[in-house]
């Protein structure tokens, strides 16, 4: 009797173990994710996933490409460049806070800062730079920060995302936290990010065509016709949370930064293509 119990417990452990171990490393997760979407959309070249829904539907893509001739964010990017280059009151510029003067660094964000043990997104770094130089932080969802982030993205155009999870339990925990966020069902409608973007990409949800996880952050910040302006990735996170009647978290909250860390890691190797336009 006792023996039977022990065997059952052992079996339970044996059954549980592989589930917990599956995709144990971020790199294994990423490879499995790439494989999953390749199988789901065998006709889509890998690098095209950065175009989100437009990678999946030819009619939409054609419409969108014609829009790219006169991109509605052009002016904002020019303003972003001006702000990026303009000195703060103390005479320094944004460039002083970033590697390589902030040119061509977008693909390395977000990164895990081993000093402060937290995920640093590009927008957080922009505001940290301002505060370190005695300037007030900017609002995180739109406006100046989106323009500066958009300009910085243009200086990395075509560079492959290269997100690292350093050998530090806190870094792995941040990554895991983001992964858990992406796969957890939320809101009154009981949907996870994955319910839409892993299980149903390529399908229509009312007038929207669902994009896949792969390449999702590559185009940000984006100019949405719905917004009539540029918005940051965390603005989009908040919108997707609200759509399932989940209370959104603040832009640049630890939860959203970890989510961005996981999501961008999944797109490692894909090019930076921001800013872009979306419906």
């Amino acid at each position: 009797m006792l023996k039977a119990k022990i065997i059952l417990v052992a079996m339970g452990v044996a059954l549980l173990a592989p589930q917990v171990l599956a995709g144990a490393t971020p790199e294994e997760d990423r490879k499995e994710t790439v494989e999953y979407f390749k199988q789901m959309f065998p006709e889509v070249p890998l690098k095209d996933f950065v175009n989100g829904q437009y990678a999946l539907n030819e009619d939409r893509r054609a419409q969108w490409q014609s829009l790219q001739d006169f991109p509605p964010y052009e002016f904002a990017v020019a303003e972003g460049k001006e702000m990026f280059e303009a000195p703060f009151a103390n005479g320094k510029t944004y460039g002083s806070c970033f590697e390589n003067g902030g040119i061509g660094v977008r693909q390395n964000y977000p990164y895990f800062d081993e000093g402060t043990k937290q995920v640093i997104t590009l927008e957080l770094a922009i505001n940290q730079c301002r505060e370190a130089n005695g300037e007030k932080p900017l609002k995180y969802k739109k406006g100046d920060i989106a323009s500066i982030s958009a300009y910085m993205a243009t200086t990395s155009e075509g560079e492959a995302f290269d997100i690292k999870v350093p050998d530090d339990p806190k870094a792995l925990a941040a990554y895991e936290d983001g992964k858990q966020f992406y796969y957890s069902r939320r809101g009154q409608l009981n949907f996870s990010c994955a319910s839409c973007h892993v299980q149903n990409p390529g399908k229509w949800i009312r007038a929207d065509l669902l994009s896949p996880t792969l390449g999702q952050p590559s185009s940000f910040p984006v100019h949405r016709s719905k917004w009539g302006e540029l918005g940051t990735l965390h603005r989009r996170f908040a919108g997707c949370n609200k759509n399932v009647r989940a209370e959104p978290l603040p832009a640049q909250s630890e939860e959203y930064r970890n989510l961005e860390y996981f999501l961008t890691y999944m797109s490692n190797g894909l090019p930076v293509v921001g800013p872009s336009t979306r419906p």
């Binding site: 589930q19 995709g23 069902r185 009154q188 892993v198």
Partner: peptide
């Protein structure tokens, strides 16, 4: 009532999310 349902959701998801993971 809604808040209680969301608490239940939080508790369920603490483990259930793993089942949805790609390759999991």
């Amino acid at each position: 009532k809604l808040a209680q349902e969301s608490v239940d959701q939080r508790k369920t998801q603490a483990e259930a999310w793993r089942k949805a993971v790609i390759g999991g």
